[in-house]
Design a protein around this nucleic acid. Structure first.
Lengths: 124, 124
DNA sequence: ATAATATACAACCGAATGGTTGTACGTTGT
DNA sequence: ACAACGTACAACCATTCGGTTGTATATTAT
Protein backbone atom coordinates (compact mmCIF):
# COMPACT_ATOMS: atom_id res chain seq x y z
CA UNK A 1 0.00 0.00 0.00
CA UNK A 2 2.79 2.43 0.85
CA UNK A 3 4.95 1.11 -1.96
CA UNK A 4 2.22 2.20 -4.34
CA UNK A 5 2.28 5.65 -2.78
CA UNK A 6 5.97 5.85 -3.51
CA UNK A 7 5.31 4.78 -7.09
CA UNK A 8 2.77 7.59 -7.44
CA UNK A 9 5.20 10.09 -5.96
CA UNK A 10 7.94 8.89 -8.32
CA UNK A 11 5.64 9.52 -11.28
CA UNK A 12 4.42 12.89 -10.00
CA UNK A 13 7.81 14.36 -9.27
CA UNK A 14 9.32 12.94 -12.42
CA UNK A 15 6.49 14.38 -14.51
CA UNK A 16 7.02 17.81 -12.98
CA UNK A 17 10.80 17.72 -13.30
CA UNK A 18 10.56 18.95 -16.91
CA UNK A 19 9.71 22.61 -17.55
CA UNK A 20 7.77 21.87 -20.73
CA UNK A 21 5.58 19.46 -18.81
CA UNK A 22 5.06 21.97 -16.00
CA UNK A 23 4.00 24.52 -18.60
CA UNK A 24 1.63 22.06 -20.22
CA UNK A 25 0.14 21.27 -16.82
CA UNK A 26 -0.39 24.97 -16.13
CA UNK A 27 -2.28 25.35 -19.39
CA UNK A 28 -4.48 22.31 -18.98
CA UNK A 29 -5.24 23.23 -15.37
CA UNK A 30 -6.43 26.62 -16.59
CA UNK A 31 -8.58 25.00 -19.29
CA UNK A 32 -8.95 22.15 -21.78
CA UNK A 33 -6.52 22.14 -24.71
CA UNK A 34 -6.09 19.78 -27.66
CA UNK A 35 -2.68 18.18 -28.01
CA UNK A 36 -1.98 19.99 -31.30
CA UNK A 37 -2.96 23.32 -29.75
CA UNK A 38 -0.48 22.62 -26.99
CA UNK A 39 2.15 21.48 -29.50
CA UNK A 40 1.84 24.78 -31.41
CA UNK A 41 3.14 26.57 -28.31
CA UNK A 42 6.50 24.83 -28.14
CA UNK A 43 9.58 24.76 -30.32
CA UNK A 44 9.60 21.00 -30.72
CA UNK A 45 7.87 18.34 -32.77
CA UNK A 46 4.26 17.34 -32.26
CA UNK A 47 5.41 13.86 -31.25
CA UNK A 48 7.63 15.27 -28.50
CA UNK A 49 4.75 17.25 -27.01
CA UNK A 50 2.53 14.22 -27.36
CA UNK A 51 5.03 12.24 -25.28
CA UNK A 52 5.10 14.94 -22.61
CA UNK A 53 1.32 14.82 -22.42
CA UNK A 54 1.52 11.03 -22.12
CA UNK A 55 3.93 11.31 -19.18
CA UNK A 56 1.56 13.71 -17.40
CA UNK A 57 -1.37 11.43 -18.15
CA UNK A 58 0.41 8.31 -16.86
CA UNK A 59 1.27 10.23 -13.68
CA UNK A 60 -2.42 11.03 -13.24
CA UNK A 61 -1.87 14.77 -13.40
CA UNK A 62 -3.91 15.12 -16.59
CA UNK A 63 -6.78 13.31 -18.29
CA UNK A 64 -7.57 13.09 -22.00
CA UNK A 65 -11.00 13.12 -23.57
CA UNK A 66 -11.67 12.30 -27.21
CA UNK A 67 -13.82 14.68 -29.23
CA UNK A 68 -13.86 13.93 -32.94
CA UNK A 69 -10.32 13.86 -34.16
CA UNK A 70 -9.03 15.94 -31.28
CA UNK A 71 -7.74 14.78 -27.88
CA UNK A 72 -8.68 17.35 -25.25
CA UNK A 73 -6.40 17.39 -22.23
CA UNK A 74 -7.50 18.63 -18.83
CA UNK A 75 -5.49 19.05 -15.62
CA UNK A 76 -6.40 17.07 -12.50
CA UNK A 77 -6.27 19.39 -9.53
CA UNK A 78 -6.83 16.56 -7.04
CA UNK A 79 -3.43 15.10 -7.88
CA UNK A 80 -1.82 18.52 -7.46
CA UNK A 81 -3.44 18.75 -4.02
CA UNK A 82 -2.15 15.31 -3.04
CA UNK A 83 1.31 16.40 -4.04
CA UNK A 84 0.96 19.49 -1.89
CA UNK A 85 0.01 17.16 0.94
CA UNK A 86 3.28 15.28 0.60
CA UNK A 87 5.22 18.52 0.90
CA UNK A 88 3.22 19.40 4.00
CA UNK A 89 4.24 16.05 5.52
CA UNK A 90 7.89 16.89 4.94
CA UNK A 91 7.40 20.21 6.68
CA UNK A 92 5.84 18.48 9.66
CA UNK A 93 8.95 16.30 10.01
CA UNK A 94 10.97 19.46 10.23
CA UNK A 95 8.67 20.87 12.89
CA UNK A 96 9.24 17.67 14.84
CA UNK A 97 12.95 18.35 14.81
CA UNK A 98 12.49 21.89 16.06
CA UNK A 99 10.39 20.81 19.01
CA UNK A 100 13.02 18.21 19.85
CA UNK A 101 15.68 20.92 19.90
CA UNK A 102 13.44 23.07 22.09
CA UNK A 103 13.34 20.18 24.56
CA UNK A 104 17.12 20.13 24.77
CA UNK A 105 17.27 23.87 25.33
CA UNK A 106 14.59 23.62 28.02
CA UNK A 107 16.66 21.08 30.02
CA UNK A 108 20.27 22.23 29.63
CA UNK A 109 21.67 20.11 32.53
CA UNK A 110 20.60 16.83 31.02
CA UNK A 111 23.42 16.68 28.47
CA UNK A 112 27.09 17.45 29.09
CA UNK A 113 28.14 17.79 25.43
CA UNK A 114 26.26 19.80 22.78
CA UNK A 115 24.65 17.03 20.75
CA UNK A 116 21.75 18.73 18.93
CA UNK A 117 20.57 15.38 17.56
CA UNK A 118 21.39 11.92 18.83
CA UNK A 119 24.35 10.87 16.60
CA UNK A 120 22.40 8.21 14.77
CA UNK A 121 19.00 6.76 15.47
CA UNK A 122 19.07 3.93 12.99
CA UNK A 123 15.73 2.22 12.67
CA UNK A 124 17.19 -1.31 12.66
CA UNK B 1 14.89 35.90 -13.65
CA UNK B 2 12.09 33.47 -14.42
CA UNK B 3 14.41 31.16 -16.31
CA UNK B 4 16.36 30.73 -13.09
CA UNK B 5 13.14 29.87 -11.28
CA UNK B 6 12.51 27.16 -13.82
CA UNK B 7 16.04 25.86 -13.28
CA UNK B 8 15.38 25.69 -9.54
CA UNK B 9 12.10 23.89 -10.12
CA UNK B 10 13.80 21.44 -12.49
CA UNK B 11 16.34 20.62 -9.78
CA UNK B 12 13.74 20.38 -7.00
CA UNK B 13 11.37 18.07 -8.78
CA UNK B 14 14.16 15.97 -10.22
CA UNK B 15 15.72 15.58 -6.77
CA UNK B 16 12.39 14.44 -5.32
CA UNK B 17 11.60 12.08 -8.20
CA UNK B 18 13.68 9.34 -6.56
CA UNK B 19 12.29 7.53 -3.49
CA UNK B 20 15.68 7.08 -1.88
CA UNK B 21 16.27 10.81 -2.10
CA UNK B 22 12.82 11.55 -0.66
CA UNK B 23 13.60 9.23 2.22
CA UNK B 24 16.97 10.89 2.80
CA UNK B 25 15.28 14.28 2.78
CA UNK B 26 12.75 13.09 5.37
CA UNK B 27 15.54 11.98 7.66
CA UNK B 28 17.63 15.11 7.36
CA UNK B 29 14.57 17.31 7.83
CA UNK B 30 13.88 15.48 11.07
CA UNK B 31 17.49 15.91 12.21
CA UNK B 32 21.16 16.07 11.19
CA UNK B 33 22.69 12.84 9.90
CA UNK B 34 26.15 12.00 8.66
CA UNK B 35 26.40 10.61 5.14
CA UNK B 36 27.63 7.22 6.37
CA UNK B 37 24.79 7.02 8.90
CA UNK B 38 22.39 7.64 6.04
CA UNK B 39 24.22 5.15 3.83
CA UNK B 40 23.82 2.43 6.47
CA UNK B 41 20.04 2.64 6.01
CA UNK B 42 19.97 1.68 2.36
CA UNK B 43 20.79 -1.43 0.41
CA UNK B 44 23.27 0.24 -1.90
CA UNK B 45 26.88 1.38 -1.86
CA UNK B 46 28.12 4.34 0.14
CA UNK B 47 29.04 6.11 -3.09
CA UNK B 48 25.48 5.77 -4.40
CA UNK B 49 24.02 7.36 -1.26
CA UNK B 50 26.69 10.03 -1.42
CA UNK B 51 25.55 10.90 -4.94
CA UNK B 52 21.92 11.09 -3.82
CA UNK B 53 22.93 13.48 -1.06
CA UNK B 54 24.87 15.53 -3.63
CA UNK B 55 21.78 15.80 -5.84
CA UNK B 56 19.70 17.04 -2.91
CA UNK B 57 22.45 19.47 -1.96
CA UNK B 58 22.76 20.86 -5.49
CA UNK B 59 18.99 21.33 -5.56
CA UNK B 60 19.25 23.34 -2.35
CA UNK B 61 17.04 20.96 -0.39
CA UNK B 62 19.85 20.00 1.97
CA UNK B 63 23.04 21.56 3.34
CA UNK B 64 26.19 19.85 4.52
CA UNK B 65 28.36 20.86 7.43
CA UNK B 66 31.81 19.42 8.14
CA UNK B 67 32.56 18.19 11.63
CA UNK B 68 35.84 16.32 11.90
CA UNK B 69 35.77 13.53 9.38
CA UNK B 70 32.00 13.50 9.18
CA UNK B 71 29.74 15.44 6.84
CA UNK B 72 26.51 16.27 8.64
CA UNK B 73 23.52 16.79 6.36
CA UNK B 74 20.54 18.89 7.31
CA UNK B 75 17.28 19.47 5.44
CA UNK B 76 16.33 22.98 4.31
CA UNK B 77 12.67 23.52 5.08
CA UNK B 78 12.58 26.88 3.28
CA UNK B 79 13.11 25.14 -0.06
CA UNK B 80 10.34 22.67 0.77
CA UNK B 81 8.07 25.63 1.48
CA UNK B 82 8.95 27.28 -1.83
CA UNK B 83 8.08 24.07 -3.58
CA UNK B 84 4.76 23.99 -1.80
CA UNK B 85 4.22 27.52 -3.06
CA UNK B 86 4.65 26.38 -6.65
CA UNK B 87 1.99 23.74 -6.17
CA UNK B 88 -0.32 26.37 -4.71
CA UNK B 89 0.21 28.47 -7.85
CA UNK B 90 -0.87 25.54 -9.98
CA UNK B 91 -3.98 25.17 -7.88
CA UNK B 92 -4.77 28.84 -8.34
CA UNK B 93 -4.68 28.39 -12.13
CA UNK B 94 -7.28 25.70 -11.75
CA UNK B 95 -9.45 27.95 -9.61
CA UNK B 96 -9.20 30.53 -12.41
CA UNK B 97 -10.65 27.98 -14.81
CA UNK B 98 -13.54 27.21 -12.52
CA UNK B 99 -14.50 30.84 -12.13
CA UNK B 100 -14.34 31.20 -15.91
CA UNK B 101 -16.73 28.30 -16.31
CA UNK B 102 -19.01 29.84 -13.70
CA UNK B 103 -19.07 32.98 -15.83
CA UNK B 104 -20.23 31.01 -18.85
CA UNK B 105 -22.98 29.36 -16.86
CA UNK B 106 -24.07 32.70 -15.44
CA UNK B 107 -24.40 34.34 -18.89
CA UNK B 108 -25.57 31.58 -21.22
CA UNK B 109 -26.69 33.97 -24.05
CA UNK B 110 -23.30 35.62 -24.50
CA UNK B 111 -21.79 32.80 -26.55
CA UNK B 112 -23.35 30.97 -29.48
CA UNK B 113 -20.85 28.10 -29.61
CA UNK B 114 -19.47 26.26 -26.59
CA UNK B 115 -15.85 27.42 -26.53
CA UNK B 116 -14.80 26.88 -22.90
CA UNK B 117 -11.29 28.19 -23.59
CA UNK B 118 -10.07 30.40 -26.42
CA UNK B 119 -8.51 27.93 -28.93
CA UNK B 120 -4.95 29.06 -28.31
CA UNK B 121 -3.59 32.03 -26.46
CA UNK B 122 0.02 31.69 -27.49
CA UNK B 123 2.30 33.82 -25.41
CA UNK B 124 4.36 35.04 -28.38
C1' DA C 1 53.22 4.78 13.52
C1' DT C 2 49.55 2.23 11.91
C1' DA C 3 44.99 0.82 11.22
C1' DA C 4 40.30 1.90 10.78
C1' DT C 5 36.81 5.33 9.54
C1' DA C 6 34.37 8.94 6.69
C1' DT C 7 34.41 11.31 2.79
C1' DA C 8 35.33 12.59 -2.12
C1' DC C 9 35.60 11.62 -6.76
C1' DA C 10 36.66 9.38 -11.26
C1' DA C 11 35.58 5.76 -14.53
C1' DC C 12 32.53 2.67 -16.13
C1' DC C 13 27.89 0.31 -17.38
C1' DG C 14 22.98 -0.68 -18.49
C1' DA C 15 18.59 1.56 -18.53
C1' DA C 16 15.73 5.48 -18.96
C1' DT C 17 14.95 10.23 -20.85
C1' DG C 18 13.95 13.73 -24.26
C1' DG C 19 14.25 14.57 -28.59
C1' DT C 20 13.91 13.28 -33.79
C1' DT C 21 11.66 11.24 -38.28
C1' DG C 22 8.56 8.20 -40.55
C1' DT C 23 4.34 5.63 -41.06
C1' DA C 24 -0.47 4.54 -40.32
C1' DC C 25 -5.22 5.54 -39.31
C1' DG C 26 -9.63 7.86 -38.15
C1' DT C 27 -12.04 12.46 -38.79
C1' DT C 28 -13.23 16.68 -41.14
C1' DG C 29 -13.72 19.83 -45.01
C1' DT C 30 -14.07 20.66 -50.15
C1' DA D 1 -13.57 10.90 -53.64
C1' DC D 2 -9.82 13.12 -51.95
C1' DA D 3 -6.90 16.23 -49.41
C1' DA D 4 -5.85 18.09 -45.01
C1' DC D 5 -5.87 17.58 -40.10
C1' DG D 6 -5.16 15.44 -35.48
C1' DT D 7 -3.57 11.63 -33.30
C1' DA D 8 -0.90 7.39 -32.27
C1' DC D 9 3.08 4.81 -32.27
C1' DA D 10 7.49 2.63 -33.67
C1' DA D 11 12.38 3.14 -34.46
C1' DC D 12 16.32 5.52 -33.69
C1' DC D 13 19.91 8.60 -31.31
C1' DA D 14 22.60 11.38 -27.89
C1' DT D 15 22.53 12.41 -23.14
C1' DT D 16 21.41 11.71 -18.43
C1' DC D 17 20.56 8.66 -14.49
C1' DG D 18 21.28 5.40 -10.92
C1' DG D 19 24.07 2.19 -9.75
C1' DT D 20 28.86 -0.12 -9.39
C1' DT D 21 34.10 -0.49 -8.18
C1' DG D 22 38.41 1.55 -7.33
C1' DT D 23 41.58 5.04 -5.66
C1' DA D 24 42.94 9.03 -2.85
C1' DT D 25 42.84 11.89 1.25
C1' DA D 26 41.88 13.58 5.78
C1' DT D 27 40.56 12.39 10.52
C1' DT D 28 40.28 9.47 14.57
C1' DA D 29 41.51 5.50 17.55
C1' DT D 30 44.90 1.97 19.19
Amino acid sequence: MDGADEDRADAWFHALSDRTRRDILRRVLAGEHSVSTLAASYDMSFAAVQKHVAVLEKAGLLTKRRQGREALASGDVAAVRSLGGMLAELESLWRGRISRIDELIATPETHTQQTPTPPHTQKD
